[in-house]
Simulated assay, not measured.
Amino acid sequence: MAGVTVLGAIALPQLPPERLPEIAEAAEQSGLAELWLWEDCFWAAGSACAATVLANTERLRVGIGVLPVPLRNVALTAMELAAVLRMHPGRLIPGIGHGVQDWMGQVGARVDSPLTLLREQLTALRALLHGETVDASGAYVHLDRVALDWPPHTPPSLAAGASGPRTLRLSGELADATVLTSATTPDGIRAARELIDEGRAKAGRTEPHRVIVYLLAATGRDAAERLAATRRRTGLPDAVGVAGDAQAIADAVHRWSAAGADTVVLEPTPDEPDPLAFVRFAGEQVRPLVE
């Protein structure tokens, strides 16, 4: 994907799920390439929301960034993803990750070694989605001759959410793409690329590895104030995010892309007053400047 920037936008999980069809329609009509969803506790399930968006569009690709592995049995995740992939071939970008550990603790799913769990789930999920029969006896994943009766016709590119060095190396080793949070600066993208490449080298992988980065973005009359408030509330540095008009945001997309992002996904602030308008703005005004 060298030299090409894919632009997407996020439909935050705070949005009521019944609004997803209109958000999906706006994303598709605006020309956006991708709409990204989160499976955050305790809003709505990622696979159900992705299926809804895909059913209401014809071209739009949908990313799930990410499904938290402590919350899920890998066989069930494989079944859900395979069904969606068969119904909407080539349009789903599934991602898995550690999840927010406090939330995992709330439901009794927190584990002693999140990295081990992610390694075991990535390995098993990839094999299941490739139509293999899987036996696994790990610390967390236990499968006895498990195979999907309806595997996807074409296995998807599987993404992993990552931020720490060990998880970034693991993503390079086992995943096809890495999702970086909106806390990532351009320098952070460069550092992540190096760690991902270390994992790729360890596994002998030479195929392209897509880096997907969320970019916190605010537009409109009070954009700077909303961005500053979000930074303060979440402890993010001033180097994170962008506020302004379409040109200002497109310029930031170019900076993040130059640092090594293949895909930049615009993330609205949690207090974005009009999520529908934000998606239209991303597709109709920012996308032409990026392309």
Results as ranks from 00 to 15, higher is better:
Pro208Thr: 02
Gly99Lys: 03
Val4Glu: 15
Asp222Lys: 00
Asp197Gly: 04
Thr178Asp: 03
Ile93His: 13
Gln101Cys: 11
Glu120Tyr: 03
Val62Pro: 06
Val100Cys: 09
Ala109His: 04
Leu15Val: 13
Leu215Arg: 00
Arg226Asp: 02
Arg255Lys: 10
Val6Ile: 10
Gly65Glu: 12
Thr184Met: 11
Ala139Asn: 10
Val100Tyr: 05
Arg231Pro: 09
Ile10Pro: 15
Asp262Cys: 09
Ala282Val: 09
Leu174Ile: 01
Leu215Trp: 05
Gly46Ala: 08
Pro70Phe: 02
Arg169His: 04
Arg59Trp: 06
Pro275Leu: 00
Asp176Asn: 05
Leu32Thr: 04
Arg19Cys: 12
Leu168His: 05
Gln101Gly: 15
Gly204Trp: 11
Leu117Lys: 02
Val213Thr: 07
Val111Leu: 07
Gly63Lys: 06
Ala160Asp: 10
Gln14Ser: 13
Ala44Glu: 13
Val279Ala: 07
Asp149His: 14
Ala24Trp: 02
Gly283Gln: 06
Glu272Tyr: 10
Thr123Trp: 08
Ile189His: 00
Glu198Lys: 03
Ala258Gln: 08
Gln29Val: 09
Leu118Gly: 07
Arg232Ser: 12
Arg231Asp: 11
Gly172Leu: 03
Pro16Phe: 03
Ala159Arg: 14
Ser163Cys: 14
Ala246Thr: 07
Gly204Lys: 04
Ala24Gly: 07
Ala159Tyr: 11
Arg119Tyr: 06
Ala228Glu: 02
Pro156Gln: 05
Asp176Phe: 02
Gly260Met: 10
Glu198Met: 09
Asp222Ala: 02
Pro94Ile: 03
Trp150His: 10
Ala82Ser: 00
Leu12Pro: 13
Ile196Glu: 11
Val213Asp: 01
Glu194Gly: 14
Val100Ile: 08
Asp102Phe: 11
Ala83Cys: 13
Gly204Asp: 05
Glu28Val: 12
Tyr214Leu: 14
Phe42Asp: 08
Val286Glu: 06
Ala175Asp: 00
Asp187His: 15
Leu15Asp: 12
Ser30Arg: 04
Ala243Lys: 06
Val66Gly: 06
Arg205Asp: 04
Gly131Val: 05
Glu28Trp: 02
Leu236Thr: 12
Thr77His: 12
Gly99Gln: 04
Leu12Asn: 13
Met1Lys: 12
Leu125Pro: 03
Arg205Phe: 06
Asp251Asn: 07
Glu132Gln: 08
Leu216Val: 01
Val111Lys: 02
Val111Gly: 10
Trp256Tyr: 13
Ala75Lys: 10
Arg221Tyr: 15
Arg145Glu: 09
Ser163Gln: 10
Glu28Cys: 12
Ala203Ser: 00
Ala223Pro: 04
Ala2Asn: 15
Ile249Tyr: 15
Asp40Ile: 12
Ala136Tyr: 06
Glu225Met: 11
Ala124Leu: 01
His130Trp: 11
Glu80Leu: 05
Leu180Thr: 00
Ala201Ser: 09
Val265His: 11
Gly220Arg: 00
Arg255Glu: 10
Ala45Lys: 15
Val69Ser: 02
Ile189Tyr: 03
Arg61Lys: 12
Glu194Leu: 11
Leu12Val: 14
Val84Arg: 05
Glu132Ile: 07
Ala192Gln: 11
Tyr214Trp: 12
Ala175Tyr: 00
Pro68Met: 05
